[in-house]
Design a protein around this nucleic acid. Sequence first.
DNA 1: TTGTCATATTCGGTGGGGCTAATGTAGCTT
DNA 2: AAGCTACATTAGCCCCACCGAATATGACAA
Lengths: 233, 233
Amino acid sequence: MPAGTTDSGLTRSVEDYLKAIFQLSHQGGFAATRDIAGLLDLAAPSVSGMVKRLSEMGLIEHVPYRGVQLTSQGRRAALRMIRRHRVLELYLTRYLGYDWDNVHGEAERLEHAVSDDLIERMAGALGDPRYDPHGDPIPTAEGEIEETELVSVAEAELGTELELRQVGTQDPARLRYFAEQGLVPGVRVTVTDRQPFNGPTTLFLTSTATARIVGRELGQLLWCAPLGVVGGG
Amino acid sequence: MPAGTTDSGLTRSVEDYLKAIFQLSHQGGFAATRDIAGLLDLAAPSVSGMVKRLSEMGLIEHVPYRGVQLTSQGRRAALRMIRRHRVLELYLTRYLGYDWDNVHGEAERLEHAVSDDLIERMAGALGDPRYDPHGDPIPTAEGEIEETELVSVAEAELGTELELRQVGTQDPARLRYFAEQGLVPGVRVTVTDRQPFNGPTTLFLTSTATARIVGRELGQLLWCAPLGVVGGG
DNA sequence: TTGTCATATTCGGTGGGGCTAATGTAGCTT
DNA sequence: AAGCTACATTAGCCCCACCGAATATGACAA
């Protein structure tokens, strides 16, 4: 293992770039330089420089002025980091008193340092979990990740009963707010109303029989799987 | 926190140097360039360069051609790293199935990445422990470390009953051997014999009533506290 | 005193990864 | 077609932390 590298033989920076690129290329599209820079809080030229190195390493494909895509090798490395991150988040939450709103930063630091061995021990202690505290699927050690078609609360059809699956933010304030509102993965909600012009959505929480009004911005962070239509349209 | 630094505001490298210097300056003496280089597996010029930076940062005092000493600030930072390392070793051993012979490397990687908060959570989960799995004292969060006068098995007087306190190696093979021999912190032993010319020492283990013969090299790794004279001299 | 030798330091160079300022390009608009 | 704007890239620079080669120093021996 050369100096300055982690277990994977990649540097921390490289690992961060790959993770960022993975997150930015949801639908097999290209990740743009400026978006990577935004996500990693770097200047654009730094990204251009790294993009060059990454593509020389065979981890990404670069189409100048268009963006980048992970190669299968790059994707493997990215999924490995995501597994580490999510296993760590769950472990810290389960065993060390972290909450879903403050665990992200700690996992972000540890994900580069822990050995694969330790991650598998943690996963074992957790019973080989499939989801992290935010509901995001944990890739397997073999690099498989569950892909589910989810719909955001802000877009879901009226009258649909949904299961809240993923909360798409790491912002502590928003996460705390969601938790207060009972909007955590696993709860069932029905979309009862939505105001026009990108207005707020009204949800009915099945288990507690209470209503919640969720603005567009937050609604776009709540990802759900449909369970079936409850009320008529 | 500037880029490339850890929680302490120091880089990983700096943290490693400080820890190494602490370990090399047992009795308030100077740590020599070559010894630091040896411990960290670096070339001597690299150490000279870092020594310059560390002394500009006020973390060490450098007497050219003599060596370096930690300042109180440097000592604090070093003890902080040692606390992290030892808390991690104990946590991994207690909760994640590591053994005392394979835990060192993992702790070495994590000690730079974990937050102070996480260390204190681990310490809390462990009940604010005072010793790591090798018997080494864990500095407090405030930077106090227990200093006990210990004597090595290779030097201990004949006829003394001793409590084995610390095992001074991280070498997995030696640690495994010690464990097989029942030579772990906490056991009581009496020195019954020693061959001349730096020969092996014979120990009698109180609890199992068995004898062990320990050569000089290994005997120097086993540190004990005296309990009192048992047999006559 | 003068060598000699081990050790320390200085010098010059490398690579990773970041930055700002300057320049290039794609994709509109007009 | 020309120009504007947003974005990407190149150019030139910095810091960290390492290296080997060359040089300096201290301690001891002859």
